Amino acid sequence: MVPTDVPSADRVVVGFDGSGPALRALDHAAEEALRRNVALEVVCGWPWGLHGSKRGTEPREQTERERPGEAITPNEAQTLYRAGRAVTDAAVERVASRHSDLRTIPHLTTEPAARALLRAGRAAALTVVGTRGHGGFTGLLLGSVGLRVAAHCTRPLTVVRGEAREPHGAVLVGIASEADADAVRFGFQEAHRRGASLKVLHAWQYPAVPGVLPSAELYWEGTDQQRRCEAAVPAFATAVLREEYPDVEVHTESVYEGAARALVEASTRADVLVLAAHRPRHSLGLQLGPVTHAVLHHAHCPVTLVPVA
Score class of each variant (00 low, 15 high):
residue 202 H to T: 09
residue 203 A to C: 05
residue 203 A to D: 09
residue 203 A to L: 05
residue 203 A to V: 12
residue 203 A to I: 07
residue 203 A to K: 04
residue 204 W to S: 01
residue 204 W to T: 02
residue 204 W to D: 02
residue 205 Q to S: 08
residue 205 Q to K: 07
residue 205 Q to G: 08
residue 205 Q to W: 02
residue 206 Y to F: 15
residue 207 P to N: 13
residue 207 P to Q: 15
residue 207 P to E: 15
residue 208 A to D: 06
residue 210 P to F: 03
residue 210 P to R: 12
residue 210 P to H: 10
residue 211 G to K: 12
residue 211 G to R: 13
residue 211 G to S: 09
residue 212 V to N: 07
residue 213 L to V: 14
residue 213 L to A: 11
residue 214 P to D: 13
residue 215 S to V: 05
residue 215 S to A: 10
residue 215 S to I: 04
residue 216 A to Q: 10
residue 216 A to C: 05
residue 216 A to W: 07
residue 216 A to F: 07
residue 216 A to M: 03
residue 217 E to Y: 07
residue 218 L to K: 07
residue 218 L to I: 06
residue 218 L to R: 09
residue 218 L to Y: 13
residue 219 Y to S: 12
residue 220 W to V: 06
residue 220 W to R: 13
residue 221 E to N: 13
residue 221 E to L: 13
residue 221 E to M: 13
residue 221 E to I: 03
residue 222 G to D: 12
residue 222 G to A: 15
residue 223 T to Q: 10
residue 224 D to N: 09
residue 224 D to Q: 06
residue 224 D to R: 13
residue 225 Q to D: 14
residue 225 Q to L: 11
residue 225 Q to H: 14
residue 226 Q to W: 14
residue 227 R to N: 03
residue 227 R to K: 15
residue 227 R to P: 01
residue 229 C to T: 09
residue 229 C to V: 04
residue 230 E to L: 10
residue 230 E to W: 06
residue 230 E to C: 04
residue 231 A to M: 09
residue 232 A to R: 04
residue 232 A to V: 00
residue 233 V to L: 05
residue 234 P to F: 01
residue 234 P to R: 03
residue 234 P to K: 11
residue 234 P to H: 06
residue 235 A to S: 08
residue 235 A to D: 15
residue 235 A to H: 07
residue 236 F to A: 08
residue 237 A to C: 05
residue 237 A to V: 02
residue 238 T to F: 01
residue 239 A to F: 04
residue 239 A to I: 05
residue 239 A to M: 09
residue 239 A to Q: 14
residue 240 V to G: 06
residue 240 V to Q: 06
residue 242 R to F: 02
residue 242 R to E: 12
residue 242 R to L: 02
residue 244 E to R: 10
residue 244 E to Q: 14
residue 244 E to K: 13
residue 244 E to L: 11
residue 245 Y to P: 03
residue 246 P to L: 15
residue 247 D to T: 08
residue 247 D to N: 10
residue 248 V to P: 03
residue 248 V to H: 02
residue 249 E to W: 00
residue 250 V to R: 01
residue 250 V to W: 04
residue 251 H to K: 14
residue 251 H to C: 07
residue 251 H to W: 06
residue 251 H to E: 14
residue 252 T to M: 00
residue 253 E to Q: 14
residue 253 E to K: 05
residue 253 E to P: 02
residue 253 E to V: 12
residue 253 E to N: 00
residue 253 E to L: 15
residue 254 S to H: 03
residue 254 S to N: 05
residue 254 S to E: 02
residue 254 S to Y: 00
residue 255 V to Q: 01
residue 256 Y to D: 05
residue 256 Y to F: 08
residue 256 Y to M: 09
residue 257 E to F: 04
residue 257 E to M: 11
residue 257 E to G: 06
residue 257 E to H: 11
residue 258 G to E: 12
residue 258 G to M: 06
residue 259 A to L: 08
residue 259 A to Y: 04
residue 259 A to D: 01
residue 259 A to T: 08
residue 259 A to N: 06
residue 259 A to S: 10
residue 261 R to S: 11
residue 262 A to S: 12
residue 262 A to H: 00
residue 262 A to G: 03
residue 263 L to C: 08
residue 264 V to A: 07
residue 264 V to H: 11
residue 265 E to P: 02
residue 265 E to D: 11
